[in-house]
Amino acid sequence: MRSRAAIGWLLVLAVTATLLIGGGVWLSNTFKSAFAPGLSFGCTATVGDNSYSLALDQSENTALISAIAVQRGMPARAASIALATALQESKLRNISYGDLDSVGLFQQRPSQGWGTVAEIMDPVYSTNAFFDALAKVPNYVDLSINDAAQIVQRSAFPHAYAQHEPVSRSFASALTGQTPHGLNCTLPPASGASTADTVLAAAQLAAGPLDATTSTADAGTTLHLVVSDAKGWMMAHWALANAQQFGIVQLSYDGWQWDRNANSGVHNVGWQAVQGTVPGQVTLLLAPAPVG
């Protein structure tokens, strides 16, 4: 009996070790450096010599949080703090469970006055709630990212946010528009697209009111978003981070273009310099509707 029990424990330990190693590989592939072309789809933020990658659903939430920071007139530092917090609390996923009654991107608790479960599960609401609390922290821009996050969250693990500073700062820099063409996404081929009205409504939810025009041709529907210089690259990167869910196949802004076909499968060329972009416009080409 003892020998069987020993064998059982060895099997448990072996499985546990495998899971831990696999988890470590997953974390490495998720957060550090650019993913290998052709092996996975996601988005990479590059600032200087440093590159960090996130999965597509994480990138969408990152873009939303960063856009709301810009919409509120908050600095990129605020976005970095929010991203580090959400990475620690939920891995940047809008989950409906957590410790005690915690839910959502920031694991906010209804019992602690953050709102109802339904409100907190709305990423726009929960992000604004986080920024409302952060804005009340005196001189938060001068604090470390970890300390500012901890003052808002009051976590039982007060030093846990620091580990996410490099990736959060890189994505915040790109997605608030501080680093032009600093975000690249590798995506599968588009299988369809949202309507221009749907994309515009989502963009306005993230960034506030926008003027826009549309045109339609065989290649698909083109949506032109009129932007200020302050919001130009933020809006372009927001659209790129959401290109998978909206069926965006091409993006252009300020003399640069991103093409889905050039960043699909084994390809990963990023933004390319082009001629003929319209000043003050982020131009999105949506995939044509399927035939039949």
Rank of each mutant, 00 (worst) to 15 (best):
Gly192Val: 10
Gln153Glu: 00
Asp132Glu: 13
Gln150Arg: 02
Gly192Phe: 12
Ser168Lys: 04
Thr127Asp: 00
Gln150Tyr: 03
Asn94Val: 07
Ala160Val: 05
Ser173Ile: 03
Val152Pro: 06
Pro188Val: 11
Ala162Glu: 00
Leu100His: 06
His159Cys: 01
Pro188Lys: 14
Ala82Ile: 10
Val167Ile: 15
Phe171Met: 02
Ile81Pro: 07
Leu105Lys: 08
Gly113Tyr: 11
Phe106Pro: 12
Met121Asn: 08
Lys136Asn: 12
Arg154Val: 15
Thr127Gly: 06
Gly113Pro: 09
Ala156Leu: 12
Gly98Trp: 12
Gln88Tyr: 03
Ala129His: 03
His164Arg: 01
Tyr140Ile: 03
Gly98His: 13
Ser173Cys: 06
Phe171Pro: 03
Ile151Leu: 14
Ala190Arg: 05
Phe131Ala: 05
His159Tyr: 04
Thr198Cys: 06
Ser80Phe: 07
Ala156Gln: 13
Thr186Arg: 15
Ala84Gln: 08
Leu183Glu: 06
Glu119Ile: 07
Pro180Glu: 14
Pro158Asp: 00
Leu143Phe: 03
Ile95Val: 14
Pro138Ser: 08
Thr179Met: 15
Asp147Arg: 01
Ile120Asn: 03
Ala86Val: 13
Gln153Asn: 01
Leu100Ser: 10
Ala86Glu: 06
Gln108Leu: 08
Ser80Thr: 15
Arg169Ile: 04
Phe106Asp: 07
Asp142His: 07
Pro188Thr: 14
Ala149Phe: 00
Val167Ser: 02
Ser90Arg: 02
Leu105Phe: 11
Asn139Ser: 15
His164Ser: 01
Lys136Pro: 06
Asn128Lys: 13
Leu87Ile: 13
Asn146Asp: 12
Pro123Arg: 10
Val124Ile: 13
Asn128Ala: 05
Val137Asn: 04
Ala129Gly: 01
His159Lys: 03
Ile120Val: 09
Ala156Phe: 06
Ser80Cys: 14
Ile151Lys: 08
Glu165Val: 00
Ala156Pro: 01
Ser126Asp: 00
Val117Phe: 09
Thr195Leu: 10
Asp142Tyr: 10
Ser194Thr: 15
Leu105His: 09
Ala135Ile: 12
Arg109Pro: 00
Pro188Arg: 14
Pro138Leu: 09
Phe131Arg: 07
Val103Ile: 15
Ala84Ile: 05
Pro110Gly: 04
Phe130Ile: 03
Ala86Gly: 14
Ser173Trp: 01
His164Leu: 00
Asp132Ala: 11
Ser170Gly: 09
Pro189Trp: 08
Ser144Arg: 03
Val167Leu: 09
Asn139His: 14
Gly104Pro: 11
Ser102Ile: 06
Asp132Ser: 09
Ala193Tyr: 09
Ile81His: 05
Asp99Trp: 12
Ile120Glu: 05
Asn139Arg: 14
Ser194Arg: 10
Gly104Gln: 12
Val141Asn: 11
Val152Ile: 14
Pro180Ala: 13
Pro166Ile: 05
Asp101Gln: 15
Asn94Ala: 07
Ser168Gln: 05
Leu92Met: 15
Gln112Val: 06
Ser194Lys: 10
Leu187Lys: 09
Leu92Glu: 08
